[in-house]
Each structure stands twice: as structure tokens, then as C-alpha cells.
Design a protein around this nucleic acid. Structure first.
Lengths: 229, 229
DNA sequence: ATGCTCGTTATTGGATCCAATAATGCAGTT
DNA sequence: AACTGCATTATTGGATCCAATAACGAGCAT
């Protein structure tokens, strides 16, 4: 699928991927002209892409000498995951410390029911992973929305650009679907526990569980399923 | 001081100010051409500025109809302050839960000594406010740096663009310097308490105190001292 | 009279061109 | 031979021009 993507988006995604993958090594200078020629586009999309990447922290401005790539180390991903846990923890804390809106409770139950259905049987196919992906995303989005604090989502926006740092990134072993099922089932049970804590008004508990949930998302040495970043 | 600022920066700052001040009302459409003509510049600086403001959450893209301003409500500022508290709370938690580096302890004591010196006497002049501003900034920057987690600083970058949401924004009553002194002295004592908790390895305590410290920064109905945003 | 379609127009995104600026290399001098 | 000053050049930021696209309105047909 050679998607006829617009030049701007294409350059942005390509540069982002090249930086996080290490194809552009840490500290390498990125010049507008050279990059533009490399992609066969004008300097303009490169410029806007570099501005965006600067906001995301993936490149650093170098005075008049252009930009420099900032390599993404595993430690930085860990850092971003920790930040995500803290921010999502704040979201659930806010929800739990206020009266639960009926609409929210209903939507939450509906989302969790998707997860329940996923693990009702014993089987697990790649298709289930896709469904979990949707369910997982819906769960986290719902919490972010229900928190009523838009600043959380704004602050989180950057982390989602780092691989494995967003809630949409599932780390699992594709060669061992049974193991993957256990992994995702554990995540679903953490969701249930967080939901229970929220609905019971146990704000501290909900926050703690959400933080641990974020940290548990990263397993070393597994294949990531990356969604739209 | 009609600073001969570059067009890009000028447009960015002006638009940001107009949005947060409400001069551009919430939901108002911002078209590139009209804005460019209004500032007497090309469309290019407006474009880059709008991109940046979009990243900051101050404008929202509106499909093909340009951008729309997102008014900043007091509730949103509260939200941002809460996010700041959580993120800075994470920073001090990380510091407290690791062995304290000797260099950090030394720098921390040096910074806190500035605060001690400020409140050693009884007097308080506007000049003291400036000194507190520097001291306060140094304290928060030091924590961010010592946390070793760059993602925190990246996530915090946006909040600093909202008035009163950054740690560099002091809210105090200029007409009542004695009251201001008490206000800032209380902040300094919170710093001391956080520092003590960190150096003693009381991670939970340090985090809780930092969160409260952030929330205490906002007083209703006072004049803000806004620093460089 | 109303709904559909086609043409016009307004607006964004991209490309090319121009100006300003700082880094670099060369030459001249001490 | 080394240092300093100047000129050249490379590179970013801004302005203008062009293309694509979608909203809007008018006109026609039913």
C-alpha cells in the first residue's frame, strides 16, 4: 500500500521513524536542503516537519547550524512510560475523587465488556490482538476524556510519538500467542481493578494501580505492535 | 523597547498573548491570510506560529477551514497547574527514591541558601521579588534536571506557555508587600520541606508535598508576575 | 418550488526565489 | 609561522507564486 501521502506528513513520519529507529544516529546534523533533496520534495515540508519534531523533542535546534537528531534510548522510553503512568494516574484519580457521572459508568462498563468478551473463551488468534488493540485504546481514551482535564491529554501527546511509550503500543510476543493472551489478560484485569477503584471512589488506589499498569506495559525482548502514531 | 524581533517570533508571541488574554475569543477562526495582513508579514511566519500553537493546544486545526482559537479558561489553568504538580511530583519522587548524588545535594543546598538569605531579614522590597523569582526558577529547574527523566521536562514545556501555569509565574499582591513576603516565605518553606523529604529518601512524602506546592501557587484575585514564556 | 449538479471562489499546502547571517577559508601582515 | 581581518559561501528564515481542494452559490431540471 503505497499510500499517496501528502509530502508534509510523509516527511514528518519518515524523519520520525528514522530518528527513533536510529537510522539517523544521535547527534547527527539534519540540514534542510540535504533532507529535502533526499526525499525529493521542497524545503518547506522539511521545515515544518523539523519544527514539529523539535516540539516533540526528537530534534534540537542548533542555532544557525540547523537541527540535530536526538536519539531515542531505551532509558528515554522508560522515562516516557513513567510520565504516561503518572499522567494517566492523575486522570483516574480525578475521576475517582468526583461523583461518577452515570454516562461515564455506562460507557466504562460497555468498554470493559469488550475486554471480558475477548477472554471469555480459551482461544486466541491474531484477530483477538486487533480487537484488544481497539479495546485498549478505547479504555485509555475514555479515561482521558472523563478526567475533564485537557492538560493531561496535551501533555501526553508527545509520549505517543515515541515507540512503545504510548498506550496504543502493545508489547507482546507474536510467536507465542498463548503467552500473549496471558499478558493481555493481565492488562485487562488491571483495567478492571482500576475501574473498580474508580467507581468505589478509592482515588489513591486507582492512581497507584494505573501507574503500575503503565509500567507493566513494557516487556523486554518482545515485538511491539505499533499503532498509528 | 520596540525590540526588533524576528517576524516569526513576533507573530507567535502576539498570537499566543491574544489567545490567552481573550482578545481572540474562544472558537474564533484564525485564517492565515487575514492574520498575515494584520501583522504586515507574509503568510509563512503565521503558518509556523499556528503549527506551534497547535502543538501547545492553543489552537485547533479545523480541517480545510484553517484554525480556531481555543480560549484559555481559569479551569484550564487549574488543570495545567495540577498536571505540573504531578510531573514535578514525579521528579522529586525519582530523586528521593535513588541515592542522592553528592553534587546534587551541594547544588540543592546552595539554591536553598539563596532562599534563606531572602527571608533572613524582616524587610521586603520589590527587588526581593525579583530575587525570589530567580531562586524559585533555579529550584524547579534543578529538580527537573536532577530527576534524570527528560520526558518530564518535555511534557512540562506546554504548561509553561499558559499564564500562571508555569513554575516561573508567581501570583502575588503587589500592593501588599508584607503579604507577598508571607506568601513567598511559605513557598520557600515548602521547598525546604520537599528538600528534606528528598534527602531523607521519603519519596512518597516528597511527591505529595510537591503536588501541594504546585496547587498553592495559584491565589485568586492577585496580580501575576509573568516571566519569560 | 425544491433538490441536484456544476462552476466559481476562497483558502490551505507546496515550490521557488530572495535576503540576512554566520561560519569558514584564504591572504596579508607582523 | 601564527594571528587577524576580510571575502566567500553555505544555510536558515521570509516572501511570493502556483496548484489542489473543498466549501458555497447559482442555475437548471424535475
Amino acid at each position: 500500500m503505497t499510500a499517496p501521502m501528502k509530502p508534509g506528513q510523509r516527511v514528518l513520519f519518515a524523519l520520525r521513524k528514522m530518528i527513533v529507529s536510529g537510522e539517523i544516529p544521535d547527534g547527527a546534523r539534519i540540514a534542510e536542503i540535504a533532507t529535502a533533496e533526499r526525499f525529493g520534495v521542497s524545503r518547506m515540508p522539511v521545515r515544518t516537519a523539523l519544527r514539529t519534531l523539535e516540539q516533540e523533542g526528537l530534534v534540537a535546534k542548533l542555532g544557525r547550524r540547523g537541527y540535530a537528531a536526538r536519539g531515542v534510548t531505551p532509558a528515554q522510553i522508560d522515562d516516557a512510560i513513567e510520565v504516561r503512568g503518572v499522567l494517566e494516574g492523575l486522570a483516574v484519580r480525578l475521576i475517582a475523587s468526583r461523583p461518577i457521572a452515570p454516562g461515564f459508568a455506562r460507557k466504562l462498563k460497555a468498554v470493559l465488556a469488550e475486554g471480558d468478551a475477548l477472554f471469555a473463551g480459551d482461544g486466541f488468534a491474531p484477530e483477538h490482538v486487533d480487537r484488544f488493540y481497539s479495546y485498549n485504546l478505547a479504555f485509555h481514551d475514555l479515561l482521558l476524556d472523563a478526567s475533564g482535564n485537557r492538560a493531561i491529554g496535551v501533555a501526553l501527546a508527545r509520549n505517543n510519538h515515541l515507540p512503545l511509550a504510548s498506550a496504543a503500543a502493545l508489547a507482546l510476543d507474536w510467536d507465542d500467542l498463548a503467552n500473549a493472551r496471558e499478558h493481555l489478560k493481565a492488562a485487562h484485569e488491571e483495567h478492571l481493578a482500576v475501574a473498580d477503584a474508580m467507581l468505589s471512589g478509592r482515588a489513591d488506589d486507582a492512581e497507584q494501580r494505573m501507574r503500575r499498569h503503565a509500567r507493566a506495559a513494557l516487556n523486554p525482548g518482545v515485538m511491539p505492535l505499533v499503532g498509528p502514531v
